[in-house]
Amino acid sequence: MKQTFLVLFVLLVSYNAIAQIDTTSFPKERNEIRELMRNRKPDIQIDCKDFIAVGAKGDISFSHEAWQGVQSKEKIVFKSVRPVPGNEFIRIYDGNMAVVNFLINVQLEVDGRAVNMKVRRLEVFHKTISGWCRVAGQGTEIDEKLFPVKAN
């Protein structure tokens, strides 16, 4: 009985470990998300109408326009956003939902002052009839003095 339980436990743990690092299922959808993220342009909308974002101060915006309004109010101007290679993780669920975690180098201006930082982003995408759109996003600044970013 103990051996049977042990074998079942090992199989269950192995299955969960494999599911955590699934990089092969839904290859078409995975590539669509990768292309959407890598080819973002400021003038092209990627957010769904029901987009929700959590800002750096913990503030919540319930639309893309509200999110931009917060940035404008805080006098934030994005100068450059570059992904850090090897720090992008895409999980696709049922072919129509994607959860993406990635690390970016951000150069921005806050109230006229230059700021450089690394930000870990978590974004959720939904596939509609017209294509993929982002339904949620949140970023966390990485304090590299406390937690240096290591290459994966």
Rank of each mutant, 00 (worst) to 15 (best):
residue 82 R to M: 10
residue 38 R to D: 11
residue 110 V to P: 09
residue 116 N to S: 14
residue 115 V to N: 11
residue 62 F to Y: 14
residue 74 E to Y: 09
residue 54 V to N: 12
residue 113 R to T: 15
residue 91 R to E: 06
residue 73 K to E: 14
residue 52 I to P: 13
residue 97 M to Q: 04
residue 47 D to M: 07
residue 78 F to Q: 11
residue 72 S to W: 03
residue 80 S to F: 02
residue 112 G to T: 10
residue 44 I to Q: 11
residue 85 P to Q: 07
residue 112 G to A: 06
residue 99 V to P: 01
residue 61 S to R: 13
residue 116 N to E: 14
residue 42 P to E: 00
residue 48 C to V: 00
residue 60 I to K: 15
residue 66 A to P: 12
residue 110 V to G: 05
residue 66 A to R: 14
residue 100 V to E: 00
residue 74 E to V: 07
residue 56 A to K: 07
residue 85 P to N: 08
residue 42 P to F: 04
residue 25 S to R: 05
residue 104 I to T: 15
residue 114 A to C: 03
residue 121 R to N: 14
residue 66 A to T: 06
residue 44 I to S: 06
residue 42 P to H: 00
residue 88 E to I: 00
residue 108 L to G: 05
residue 49 K to C: 02
residue 36 L to M: 09
residue 117 M to H: 06
residue 45 Q to I: 07
residue 106 V to I: 09
residue 116 N to T: 12
residue 32 E to Y: 03
residue 33 I to S: 01
residue 96 N to E: 12
residue 53 A to W: 04
residue 81 V to Q: 14
residue 67 W to V: 01
residue 99 V to H: 07
residue 42 P to L: 03
residue 27 P to N: 12
residue 115 V to D: 10
residue 50 D to Y: 11
residue 71 Q to Y: 04
residue 121 R to A: 06
residue 29 E to L: 05
residue 29 E to D: 05
residue 55 G to N: 15
residue 58 G to Y: 06
residue 109 E to H: 06
residue 62 F to N: 13
residue 26 F to R: 04
residue 61 S to G: 12
residue 122 L to C: 08
residue 112 G to I: 09
residue 51 F to T: 00
residue 88 E to V: 01
residue 59 D to P: 01
residue 77 V to S: 15
residue 26 F to A: 11
residue 52 I to V: 15
residue 82 R to E: 14
residue 40 R to T: 07
residue 79 K to D: 06
residue 102 F to R: 02
residue 67 W to A: 15
residue 30 R to V: 00
residue 54 V to S: 11
residue 85 P to A: 10
residue 50 D to C: 05
residue 38 R to Q: 09
residue 113 R to M: 04
residue 103 L to Y: 07
residue 27 P to I: 10
residue 116 N to P: 04
residue 118 K to I: 08
residue 93 Y to I: 13
